[in-house]
Design a protein around this nucleic acid. Structure first.
Length: 204
DNA sequence: GCCAGGATGTTA
DNA sequence: AACATCCTGGCG
């Protein structure tokens, strides 16, 4: 399976977030399928940290595409993002959920109370806990690090139509459908809204 | 199964 | 004061 390079992240955040669904994320000997992501746009997205944090605007300016942006949320959970810098748009991809594939024993050790495999990383804070990601990854170019790989599946296995919906846990910009999910994955953090009924009756 | 509430650190 | 969350306990 081909590995992503930093070039993947030199496009716009929404495209990157959507195309990451179905890719495999390897971190220090553990790995899983990326089943849920969210896009944040550094220019005009009120939910993006750049909207209200000068330090995050400086981070975007001073780091290349593919840099990890990791921060502590609610004082409790590390959240893992990758910096995206395209010619027209920049921002972040938030990794929200993973379906564990390997290194499951290590994930269980870090999340000892979790019974079901598909609940080990079914949320952005759970994901970082399961993989052992913390603030030490912040600001590093993960795709150049030997312990990190993101691989793309064969074209036949690519998720062509990920689920979409509003982002979770934010109060601003609820109208933007910038959350993406793997259809029918058991490891999503929450259900996606059912898509609107088709406007025209399908042919029979 | 559901929901209310608490823990907790960094930013502004 | 707000916050891109998770877990627990209480209730049915």
């Amino acid at each position: 399976m081909p590995s992503l390079t930093e070039a993947f992240f030199t496009r716009d955040p929404v495209t990157c977030s959507r195309e990451l669904i179905g890719c495999h994320f390897h971190w220090h000997g553990a790995a899983g399928i990326i089943v849920e992501t969210e896009a944040y746009d550094s220019a005009d997205d009120p939910a993006c940290h750049t909207w209200f944090r000068p330090s995050t605007r400086a981070f975007v300016e001073s780091h290349p595409a593919g840099t990890a942006y990791v921060y502590l949320n609610y004082g409790v959970h590390w959240l893992f993002n990758i910096l995206v810098k395209g010619p027209h748009r920049s921002g972040f991809v938030l990794f929200r959920a993973l379906e564990p594939v390997s290194g499951i024993d290590a994930m269980r050790q870090r999340r000892p109370k979790i019974r079901h495999t598909h609940q080990l990383a079914s949320g952005p804070g759970k994901l970082t806990r399961a993989l052992g990601i913390d603030g030490s990854a912040h600001g590093t170019r993960i795709l150049l690090a030997p312990h990190c790989r993101i691989t793309r599946p064969a074209p036949t296995a690519t998720v062509t139509a990920p689920l979409t919906g509003p982002r979770i846990g934010i109060s601003r910009a609820q109208d933007l459908p910038w959350r993406f999910g793997h259809p029918h994955s058991p490891a999503l953090s929450q259900k996606f809204p059912t898509p609107p009924a088709p406007q025209v009756a399908p042919p029979r």
